[in-house]
């Protein structure tokens, strides 16, 4: 084991909103107050109507699994100590597509619930759990 390795914690400044949500037990995505678009990954303008009137709102997290991989290699020591790592690609009911860690039992085609959890570096990461 690599003693000091932590999960990669480097993010854009906007990610703190997701981490704050995770701390309060919520999955928060940006909603455009002009056109209603829910977007992910975070941006400073709406990718549909270009408004900057965006609010971080909780979403339920219901999603469909589009694809999945089992990783046997990683560039980060933290993950190398934990291989294989299962990652899924999901589409939230609100529209956005996200990479998430997959709990056991999550498979392609499933309905799943996505949540934001704090990792060992105290940064939010998304997880999919069987519904």
């Amino acid at each position: 084991m690599t003693d000091k390795a932590l999960p990669p914690a480097f993010r854009t400044a906007l990610w703190r909103h997701v981490t704050e949500g995770a701390r309060e037990g919520e999955l928060r995505f940006q909603t455009c107050l002009q056109c209603g678009q829910v977007q992910y990954p975070p941006r400073e303008v709406c990718g549909r109507c270009l408004a900057d009137d965006l609010e971080w709102r909780p979403v339920e997290g219901m999603a469909k699994v589009l694809s999945k991989t089992r990783l046997h290699a990683s560039l980060e020591p933290w993950f190398r100590d934990r291989l294989p790592v299962e990652v899924a690609l999901v589409q939230l009911d609100e529209g956005p597509v996200a990479y998430v860690f997959a709990e056991q039992g999550v498979d392609v085609g499933n309905r799943v619930r996505v949540s934001a959890r704090l990792d060992e570096a105290d940064v939010a990461v998304l997880w999919a759990s069987p519904r």
Binding site: R11, L66, S74, V87, V100, V123
Partner: peptide, 26 residues
């Protein structure tokens, strides 16, 4: 990329392999 920094790299740090694994599986 900004998107990768927030929403791809933290999920296993596998670089493009993870992205194209998803496309290939699909």
């Amino acid at each position: 990329s900004s998107f990768s920094r927030d929403a791809v790299y933290p999920y296993g740090a596998a670089g493009p392999n993870a992205v194209f694994a998803m496309i290939t599986r699909c």
